[in-house]
Design a protein around this nucleic acid. Structure first.
Lengths: 133, 133
DNA sequence: ATATTAAAGACTTTGTTTGTCTACGATAAT
DNA sequence: ATTATCGTAGACAAACAAAGTCTTTAATAT
């Protein structure tokens, strides 16, 4: 794992889409204005979400982005992974016979954090919580 | 938090000192050879450990570095913090009225990981486990 | 004095992220 | 069909942080 600004924009964008209306279609133009970021830059981030299957895109006039998964299922981890990939937060490059014991501990630590982020869904932060039952 | 190679070298160096002998004095020359890293670079890292109070240094001929704390007390987190400082892994720079709810979740995730690393002691990895009782 | 060793600062290199620019492709409206 | 709109993609430039080097200084034992 890893965190970059791109992940931050992705998280905010999806949360925004959830809060507005899950079914709605958003142009990158509108989204970019929300977060004061350039259209081309945000569109790249959104494209990564599309490739990860979290968001759907329609090209052409009156196109845009919509959420693809039901909002109850979208976790923090889903988005982080879509943007950052599956790399490790800590990578010991030091050569060792039987694997690095420090690496093992650091991996465990990361996994604990990731589990939390996997369970935490974005819609929980939404003020408009629907179907909470 | 954050991880860099410097942290990795610091972790390995302290683990090495623990495994050799907690009371022993090590020159940066010897330590640097262990991990195939330059003397000046590693000395900077060690200086940070000194400033954090984890390691003691003696200048001059037959000087060197020794562990300062008892090995049962040195945690992963101690070393990480000594090198990386207290920054957050995730920092949302987006302006918001009531603080960023995403930031809050990310902080919680980080804290969970840090707690694990705080409890995990380096000497647990040592093959020569002393006074384990 | 001299050799050894840690500390410190300036500096360079390297790598990654951020962000821009431009061209291309898809779609709807006319 | 043409045009305006909107997402995709690649090359590129700028900014930043980390990694690593070089050189000088300060402390200490012999």
């Amino acid at each position: 794992m890893k965190y970059t600004k791109a992940t931050n924009y992705a998280l905010h964008t999806v949360l925004y889409m959830i809060e507005q209306n899950q079914g709605e279609k958003f142009s990158v133009h509108v989204l970019a204005k929300q977060f004061q970021v350039s259209v081309t830059y945000l569109s790249k981030i959104l494209t990564q979400l599309v490739k990860a299957g979290l968001v759907e895109s329609v090209s052409g006039a009156s196109g845009g982005y919509t959420l693809r998964k039901s909002i109850e299922t979208i976790s923090f981890m889903d988005i982080i992974q879509a943007i950052e990939g599956n790399g490790l937060l800590f990578e010991c490059g030091i050569q060792q016979e039987k694997g690095c014991p420090i690496q093992k501990v650091m991996n465990d630590a990361e996994i604990i954090m990731e589990k939390y982020l996997q369970e935490k869904k974005l819609f929980e932060l939404s003020s408009i919580k629907r179907n909470q039952k």
